[in-house]
Design a protein around this nucleic acid. Structure first.
Length: 463
DNA sequence: ATCGGCTCGCGCAA
DNA sequence: TGCGCGAAGCCGAT
């Protein structure tokens, strides 16, 4: 047996349960959760390299669990869209695939059947995912490792919750030479044959038939999951929208952003692939810089927030200065007060806000610039910042394809409780010193009429 | 179009 | 202890 030291020494890897891999085990299991792709996936690569050194085949275990992260049909359809690419890419790498559906989805039950030497999983900073891993680590009888596969800089290296972009930026930049590298894509040396019935199951969209999930949100007609779709989305962005990104990204009428967030959320594309493609374009330096700032610094700041602040889902994530100002303004008169239902149905007096809400409900994606405005207005139009936070989280998680993502929580926390921000400008009603966004100014910064008209056309089904 | 004032606290140099 | 400077702000002056 060759040494596993170089794999274990990777800073991306965390040993959740230590010990020697079972020499009588039949395979290495990669429990695929967050990183749903079979290329550019450091966790899969770690599993394959481990298998190759142990002389064992590798099998990917993927579970379809209902109500996972409060997901609905929109999210599950996007997930299932991606399974065909995963199966095809795994076959090229001589790795097996097992998809198990509720109620026969338990990892431990699967392990008792296949007898792995060890289990490797990917990282997910959300609390439930972390709790599940802790439970598995306690119960499993073989070594259990996790690999941080969906960030450039392994999130544990940032060691604490950072105060803002300006404190995390130099730390991330210092580590980029070490971590912003192509992910190796070796093939397994020892073949695991996936039974053909699994192949057909994966290519069959009836995977969701009779699956007990919330079917109240329709699948997106505008975004389809999968590594190939993600790659096409990346190429379209690099070809036509990276140039000018620095100035156009905050103009929702132009769709100047990458629109990669659903794919990054499901792990259908690796952040390294996206980041490393940028210098190979002829886009101006300021545009590349602006995009990499969003893709790496701010995205990983959001991961840092979720990983190190257990209150990311509620108002208690509040910054102390924002808490003081919110208390002071708790009884301020709300000129507009909307129920969650009115907000959900886009029935406010504000045409820009309604359009943003409808874009999210109809397509599963809201432009990033409007996500800020959207959350700020929920603060303004509900009875308390606590309620606003809850409503913003629920609507975001229900309708956005990238709901339940660190970016969503960090964005809402920025808008409502001052996370990664500071007190700014004159004290205003309701907001106090929390940064304000006005309808007048926001709608003047881009062609808001064109944006509203486009969403109206979407609603009529003419685009 | 672009600028300055508004305003606060972290992180670091000293 | 003091200083620089910051995720997206607004508004009014030029």
């Amino acid at each position: 047996m060759k040494s596993l030291d170089s794999i274990l020494g990777d800073p991306r890897l965390t040993v959740r349960r230590s010990g020697e891999p079972d020499p009588d085990g039949k395979c290495v299991v990669y429990w695929m959760q967050r990183a749903q792709r079979a290329v550019d996936n450091p966790a899969l690569t770690a599993a394959i390299e481990t298998g190759n050194r142990l002389g064992k085949p590798v099998v990917v275990f993927l579970q379809l669990v209902p109500h996972s992260h409060h997901g609905n049909l929109r999210h599950y359809q996007f997930l299932v869209d991606g399974l065909g690419d995963i199966a095809a890419d795994l076959q090229k790498r001589k790795v097996g695939l097992v998809v198990r559906r509720f109620p026969d989805h338990g990892l431990l039950r699967f392990c008792s059947g296949v007898r792995p030497c060890l289990v490797i999983a990917d990282e997910n900073p959300l609390m439930e995912a972390e709790r599940t891993k802790t439970r598995i680590a306690q119960k499993i009888s073989v070594p259990f490792w996790t690999v941080d596969a969906d960030v450039v800089v392994p999130s544990k290296l940032l060691t604490k919750e950072h105060y803002g972009a300006r404190t995390i930026r130099p730390k991330i930049h210092a580590l980029l030479p070490q971590f912003l590298r192509e992910v190796r894509n070796p093939a397994a040396k020892f073949l695991w044959r996936t039974p053909s019935r699994v192949q057909s199951l994966v290519s069959n969209l009836s995977l969701l038939d009779n699956f007990p999930i919330d079917r109240g949100v329709a699948p997106s007609k505008h975004f389809h999951g999968g590594s190939q779709e993600a790659q096409l989305c990346l190429e379209r962005f690099l070809r036509s929208r990276l140039k000018g990104y620095a100035t156009q990204r905050n103009k929702p009428d132009l769709d100047g952003t990458s629109q990669l967030s659903p794919y990054l959320h499901f792990g259908h594309i690796g952040v390294q692939r996206v980041a490393l493609a940028v210098p190979r374009t002829d886009a101006p330096a300021q545009d590349r810089k602006a995009f990499l700032e969003e893709l790496i610094v701010r995205r990983e700041l959001a991961v840092n927030f979720v990983r190190f602040n257990c209150n990311y889902e509620n108002f208690d994530a509040c910054e102390p200065w924002a808490d003081v100002t919110h208390r002071k303004h708790a009884r301020d008169l709300r000129q507009y007060l909307y129920s969650e239902k009115q907000l959900e149905d886009a029935e406010t007096h504000d045409p820009l806000w309604n359009a943003a809400q409808k874009q999210m409900v109809l397509t599963g994606w809201m432009h990033g610039y409007l996500r800020m405005y959207w959350a700020k207005k929920i603060l303004e139009w509900t009875e308390s910042p606590q309620a606003a936070y809850q409503i913003a989280v629920r609507l975001n998680d229900r309708y956005e394809l990238d709901g339940r993502d660190p970016n969503g929580y960090a964005g809402i926390a920025w808008a409502i409780v001052g996370k990664h921000d500071r007190a700014w400008g004159p004290e205003r009603p309701i907001y106090g010193k929390v940064r304000y966004m006005s309808f007048a100014s926001t709608s003047r910064k881009f062609n808001s009429k064109a944006y509203i008209a486009r969403v109206a056309a979407l609603e009529r089904g003419t685009i």
